[in-house]
């Protein structure tokens, strides 16, 4: 299968704590993948390593065929800007500049000319065309997150990572954001990887990866919210046992 990002034997330690324990997997192109797991299971660390925001303690991450481990901080940033879009739970819009300026910020940092027609299309799609001149602080949480998605997509990244994108949103806004992500995959062929702890959110994905104790423990294709909820409940109540699993 054609993988956008491949992780091989990735381990990440924070001091004594092992956040990722020898994880190998690939994210397939054009699909919507959800990463699930209880708190502390390593799901956020997984996509931060996959997105080259963080570096693994051992193992390798390849983005577009380039081994991230061989790059210095600057090269890694450049690689990220070229291939990856990232949506944070806390939006990460800069409060000092307007929404419009935020949308093109990453491109500006990369020294790339923004594709204005593309961005205008995205803005129309998320319904923010009348809020562009506002400061982020003047937008609702849902609007800010939609703006963050537009910014992540503005450079046409190979893959869009989203870390708990609905974590801070009310149900209605969360549902809008999930619709948006799904439609990007369906209509535009965008690859999306989303970390979430909400089974209902994960159920919108093509596949769900289940993490526990820094390991990948299960892969559920076309999951339903009920299956996922049940699977997670079992994980939460289980004794310490590692399930092997590969994709």
């Amino acid at each position: 299968m054609n993988h956008v990002v491949t992780l091989t034997g990735v381990t990440k330690k924070y001091g004594e704590l092992t956040a990722l324990d020898d994880v190998s997997l690939g994210f397939p192109r054009g699909r919507f993948t959800a990463v699930m797991g209880p708190s502390g299971s390593g799901k956020s660390t997984l996509i931060q390593c996959a997105a080259a925001l963080d570096t693994p303690t051992s193992g390798s991450v390849a983005i577009g065929g380039v081994d991230v481990g061989t790059l210095n901080e600057t090269k890694r940033t450049e690689l990220r800007r070229a291939h990856i879009g990232f949506v944070f739970q806390s939006y990460n819009l800069l409060p000092a500049i307007t929404v419009e300026e935020n949308l093109t910020l990453t491109l500006r940092l990369a020294g790339r000319k923004p594709d204005l027609a593309w961005i205008r299309m995205l803005v129309e799609r998320v319904g923010l065309h009348d809020r562009l001149r506002h400061r982020p602080g003047e937008l609702s949480g849902g609007q800010q997150q939609r703006a963050a998605i537009v910014r992540a997509l503005a450079g046409r990244p190979d893959v869009l990572f989203a870390d708990e994108p609905t974590g801070a949103l009310d149900l209605r806004s969360a549902s809008q954001v999930l619709d948006l992500l799904r439609s990007m995959v369906d209509d535009l062929g965008q690859t999306v990887v989303m970390v979430t702890h909400d089974p209902a959110a994960a159920a919108r994905a093509h596949d769900a990866l289940i993490m526990a104790d820094g390991r990948l423990v299960d892969v559920l294709p076309a999951p339903s919210a009920e299956d996922l909820a049940a699977r997670l409940t079992r994980l939460a109540g289980r004794p310490v046992a590692a399930a092997g699993g590969a994709l």
């Binding site: 940033t77 990460n92 800069l94 910020l105 940092l109």
Partner: peptide, 15 residues
């Protein structure tokens, strides 16, 4: 926090 945000949005340390 502000600098971390800018960095995550794609700024190199030099920038």
């Amino acid at each position: 926090a502000e600098l971390t945000a800018v960095k995550r949005l794609g700024s190199t340390p030099r920038q």
